[in-house]
Design a protein around this nucleic acid. Sequence first.
DNA 1: ATTCTAACA
DNA 2: TGTTAGTA
Length: 121
Amino acid sequence: MSEKELRKSMAVFPIGTVMKLTDLTARQIRYYETKDLVYPERTEGNQRMYSLNDVDRFLEIKDWLQAGYSMVEIQEMYQEEQTEEVIHWENHDLSDHDVRRLFYDELLSESRLGQGNPFQR
DNA sequence: ATTCTAACA
DNA sequence: TGTTAGTA
């Protein structure tokens, strides 16, 4: 991972700052966390700390919501992302060639599903 | 002053 | 989702 990406994933702002940056209420910000849309870190005092990537994600969520998607649909979009990451980690010991093949198979099964994808509304 | 969890006239 | 109570 590049240094830029690392910085973007550093948890540095408290919920109050995220509220100002996203125009979301603290309630919504915490609610989306229960939907596994973000995983903020916690300080010793149990206070949530968000990263630049988290802020971006909240803004994205707002866009999907305004576009008419439901919470569950949005939840599923990111759920697939997470699944890919998990596969990536679990196969950390596999060769680059094997990983590429796994992704290729993934893409194939997706195109077979064709129209049924949540991104085409 | 801020944030957190839990709960609901 | 809002809001409020009692904390840390």
